[in-house]
């Protein structure tokens, strides 16, 4: 723990002068002055904390980390405790990475149950959804983590396992079709049943989420998932500050750390604000449909009512809220 803290602090110290010189080169005089002021502020903080202790995190950071380490499982927190942890995480992001994020702890909207449908006829395998998801959810760039997988399928098969999940050529290819797979947000999720610490659960709006901080990294949920819906942080994930999505949710796209499980959350940070998940918004062919299953006028209900739909591995009675359909 200490080693890590020291390293991060060192990085910060090393990067701050570079940052100012960079800014001097790229931007005008005003930016340079701003940067210089920042550097001076950082320098004075380092001076104040004393030369010997400069490598250690500041008292504020230590206190924040201490409180973060001993906090409860998110589900047991009161509304004000949720608010406190979210503020602490915002502050820590500012101290450690100098990024200003806005983190929400917004609860599920009553009367909402999210569902998803995927039009197999329309998808042409462009993977715009994958790129949008990586960007929106701050997925690790180093290990190229992606929640969504697209499979190129030969006619005559209807299960991604039979398709090619690693194609690197121009799409669409004649005589092939494309199928996407991600977390299916089962109504009866085997991962939730497996977790020994209740670090993963189904929210009232049907989204299966992970409390990243409560996860102990045993990976039993990963073994239990029949859809390959979960991803593990084998290393500390890396997202450049410039590319980071700053609007975050505690249960969604906030930064994870090594040793924690993560997964698709139907973009909880967007959907609870009434927006569409990034993948749905990004899809150029309109193959992705998302909405409230409890709203009879929603598009998802229209698809379920008027199209012939199917789900994967229904024999496992996991009851996924993710349907495939064909036009």
């Amino acid at each position: 723990m200490d080693i890590r803290k020291n390293n991060e602090n060192k990085n910060q110290k090393e990067s701050s002068p570079n940052q100012t010189t960079d800014k001097k080169k790229k931007f005008g005089r005003r930016d340079f002055l701003k940067g210089a002021a920042k550097a001076a502020a950082l320098g004075s903080v380092a001076m104040a904390s004393g030369c010997g202790t400069a490598l250690l995190p500041s008292k504020e950071e230590r206190e924040l980390r201490w409180k973060e380490y001993f906090k409860k499982n998110y589900r047991l927190m009161t509304v004000s405790e949720k608010e406190e942890t979210v503020r602490r995480l915002e502050r820590l992001a500012k101290i450690k990475k100098d990024v200003s994020i806005q983190m929400s702890s917004k609860a599920a909207i009553p009367g909402v149950l999210y569902g998803y449908a995927f039009n197999v006829t329309r998808c042409e395998g462009f993977m715009e959804c994958v790129a949008a998801c990586v960007k929106e959810n701050n997925l690790d760039r180093k290990s190229k983590t992606q929640y969504i997988r697209i499979f190129e399928m030969e006619p005559g098969e209807m299960a991604p396992a039979a398709g090619n999940g690693k194609y690197f050529h121009e799409v669409p290819v004649e005589g092939h079709f494309y199928m996407g797979a991600q977390c299916f947000h089962c109504e009866n999720p085997p991962c939730v049943k497996a977790c020994p610490t209740k670090a993963t659960w189904k929210e009232p709006d049907g989204i299966v989420v992970v409390d990243y901080n409560w996860c102990i990294g045993c990976r039993y949920c990963m073994a239990a998932c029949p859809y390959y819906g979960r991803r593990f942080n084998w290393h500390d994930p890396e997202v450049p500050a410039k590319e980071m999505t700053k609007k975050q949710h505690y249960l969604g796209n906030r930064m994870r750390a090594r040793g924690q499980m993560e997964k698709c959350t139907f973009c909880v940070q967007r959907t609870r604000e009434g927006r569409l998940p990034a993948c749905v918004e990004a899809c150029p062919t309109g193959a992705r449909v998302f909405g409230n299953l409890l709203d009879p006028k929603s598009e998802i209900r229209f698809v379920l009512k008027n199209k012939k739909v199917f789900r994967l591995k229904e024999e496992l009675t996991t009851d996924p809220k993710f349907w495939y359909f064909i036009d």
Partner: peptide
């Protein structure tokens, strides 16, 4: 095997 051995107290 634990990813977060320091969180083992959560058990």
């Amino acid at each position: 095997d634990l990813g977060g051995p320091l969180n083992a107290w959560h058990l």
